[in-house]
Simulated scan of single mutants.
Amino acid sequence: MNPAISMKEAADILRKAISGELPLVSVAGKGKWQEGYCGNFEFTIGDWTFIFFNDCDELDYVDKVTAPDGRIAEFDDWCTDELIGCPFNDLTDAEMAKLEDMVYVS
């Protein structure tokens, strides 16, 4: 089964946030990254919604993505018997480091 949003498509939106082309904003009322040790945290990137999982203060994986047109993909949609999938897999180490910095200060 193909997810409604591919890992590559989600990674491309993450890259737009990393480059500054789209703003990454913590969703109000869901708590700041620094205030939660573990759990899901919601962010918008332009008109997209991303839910990142914070695992012991580390940006671990994308739990859910919602596109502006209503398409949704969740972590399990990207996983197969051969691959634990996540849009983070498509990012370079430098891109991940920049995204982590952005999430931590949101």
Rank of each mutant, 00 (worst) to 15 (best):
R71Y: 00
T66P: 08
A10S: 01
V62E: 05
P68W: 12
P23T: 11
A73T: 01
F43D: 04
N40W: 05
Y61M: 06
T80D: 13
A10G: 04
N54L: 13
F41E: 14
I13E: 03
E9D: 03
V27I: 08
W48Y: 07
E82Q: 05
D47P: 07
C86R: 00
K32F: 02
V27W: 07
S19K: 03
C79V: 15
T80E: 09
I13S: 03
K8A: 06
V27Q: 09
D57P: 02
V65R: 00
P68N: 14
L59T: 13
D63H: 00
N54E: 06
N54H: 04
C38T: 11
D63V: 03
K16Q: 15
A67P: 12
V65M: 02
K8P: 02
C56D: 10
R15Y: 00
D76N: 07
C86V: 01
I84L: 13
C38G: 11
F43R: 15
Y61T: 06
E9V: 02
S26R: 15
S6A: 04
W48R: 00
D57T: 07
I13Q: 01
C56S: 10
C38P: 01
G70D: 12
F52V: 08
V27P: 11
E42N: 10
P23H: 11
V27L: 03
G85D: 06
A17Q: 11
E42F: 11
G46P: 10
R15A: 00
E82Y: 08
K16A: 13
Y61D: 11
C86G: 07
E21V: 09
G70W: 13
L59F: 06
N54S: 14
L14K: 00
R15E: 02
D47M: 01
I13A: 03
V27A: 03
G85A: 08
S19R: 02
E21M: 07
I84M: 13
N40D: 12
Y37S: 01
G39A: 05
D55Y: 08
R15F: 02
W78K: 10
R15I: 02
D47E: 08
R15G: 00
A17R: 04
T49Q: 09
I51C: 05
E82M: 04
E21L: 08
G46M: 11
I18N: 10
D69L: 06
S19L: 00
L22G: 01
F52Q: 00
S26L: 14
I18L: 09
P23L: 11
A10E: 04
A11G: 01
D77R: 01
A28M: 09
G20L: 12
N54P: 10
G20E: 13
D55N: 07
L22F: 12
A73V: 12
E42S: 14
G36S: 02
G31V: 06
A10T: 04
T49E: 12
G85N: 03
E21Q: 09
A11P: 07
W33E: 05
E42T: 14
G36H: 06
V25C: 09
W33S: 08
L24I: 15
R71W: 03
D55K: 10
D60P: 02
C86H: 02
G85E: 02
T49C: 03
E42I: 13
I18E: 11
E35V: 08
T80G: 15
M7L: 02
K30N: 09
E35R: 14
K16G: 01
G36F: 05
